[in-house]
Each structure stands twice: as C-alpha cells, then as structure tokens.
C-alpha cells in the first residue's frame, strides 16, 4: 500500500523511498535513481576525465558501486552528494592510472618562440579573441601538469563552476585545502599565460 501511495504522489517518490524500495528487493527503484542522476554524473565525470568513453564507464561503475553499498548509505548526506562522491573518487582513480597525456597544440611556457599576437587587429572583439586563445591553451597546458587531486578540483571549478565549498563537500576535504589546491592550479595556468602576457606588454610598448 505504501508503494501505491508513493506512485500517486505528484512529485514522485523521494530518493529515500527509492532506496528503500531497492533494499526491499525491487530493482525498479534503483532504475529510477539511475535515470534521475545519470546525466549529472556523466556530465561531471566528463568534466573531470575529458573523455566520453571513460565518463560513460565511470558513470556506470559509480551506479553499480552505489547499488552494492546502498545498505551502508546512512542518509547523512543527500543521495546525490553520496553518488557524486563515489563518481569523483572513480574519476580520480582513473586520472591516477592514466599513463598517457594530452599534448595540446601551441607554444608552451619557456618556449623560445613567443606567440605572435596580432595586436594591430582592428576588429571589435580582437582583444577578446586574443584572451580566448591565450586562456584556452594555457588551461590545457597547465592542467596536464597538475596532480590528480588538483585536476579534479580545478576541473570541477572550471567546467562545472562549482563553488569551493561544494567542491570541498564532494571531496570530503576542508575548504581551505580545496582553496590551496585550486590556487596552485590557477598559479600554473598563470605561468602558462606569462609568455603571452610578456608579448602583449612588449607589443603595447612598441605601439
């Protein structure tokens, strides 16, 4: 009778109801949880690992892990937070195990040849386009040199635009620790930006 009451509710069953349904032996409850959160988990996994196949695999693994440990879920946090934490841990493991690195195309910090900037560009969005090219490449180069933990934090901040406090909650870290990791990551991005900044400044003086 309880399940009938849940089904007829307008806002649908809560996560707790679906968990109880699953623990009671009805897997349909868990299928609903999967369809409810799979998009968010996949999106976040992709933001971190930057690969569609890996993100898909991690999403599936995260749900299976959640199912296996469902009885241990005490409800101290939201199910979504708990599930996201599982997925993030899998992403971090995946990054740690990755033996290959993405090599972004473009000049690196310390390269002899400074990037050429078309400072005389008169188009209205010229400055924006320059910044765009600078930042995109700097981010890609910098992130590859980060530790797995720093990558996770930086990418959650950059791609998911999560506040530092939320990242701290998801990673079960102190906000100060997250801030320190993020600061180091941003510092590396800035380092990658230095050649462009120097070239930009030199071009400005030449004008």
């Amino acid at each position: 009778m309880a399940s009938l009451r849940l089904i007829t509710r307008d806002d649908g069953p809560s996560d707790r109801d679906l968990i109880d349904q699953t623990l009671g032996g009805d897997q349909a409850g868990f299928a609903l949880l999967v369809s409810k959160y799979q998009r968010r988990i996949y999106r976040m996994a992709f933001a971190i690992v930057r690969n569609e196949a890996d993100a898909d695999s991690i999403t599936q693994d995260a749900f299976v892990t959640a199912y296996v440990n469902l009885a241990k879920f005490e409800g101290r946090s939201e199910f979504e937070t708990w599930l996201t934490r599982i997925a993030i841990n899998k992403c971090r493991d995946q990054l740690r195990g990755r033996k290959w690195k993405l090599i972004p195309i473009g000049p690196a910090a310390g390269d002899d040849e400074a990037p050429s900037l078309d400072v005389a560009d008169e188009r209205p969005n010229a400055e924006r386009e320059i910044i765009s090219a600078q930042i995109g490449q700097a981010i890609e180069r910098a992130v590859e040199s980060l530790s797995a933990q720093q990558k996770v934090i930086f990418r959650l901040r950059h791609f998911e635009e999560l506040p530092l406090e939320e990242i701290a909650t998801l990673l079960d870290l102190a906000p100060g620790t997250v801030r320190a990791h993020l600061f180091r990551a941003v510092h590396k991005v800035r380092k990658e930006l230095e050649p462009w900044a120097a070239a930009n400044a030199a071009a400005g003086e030449a004008e």
Binding site: I135, R157, V189, R190, L193
Partner: peptide, 13 residues
C-alpha cells in the same frame, strides 16, 4: 591588473 591576476580573481572568488 593583468590577465593572470584577473584570472585568479575569477577562479578563487
């Protein structure tokens, strides 16, 4: 302020 400082400002709130 340079791009780097503004970048830090944007990321770190």
């Amino acid at each position: 302020y340079g791009t780097g400082e503004l970048l830090t400002h944007a990321y770190m709130s």
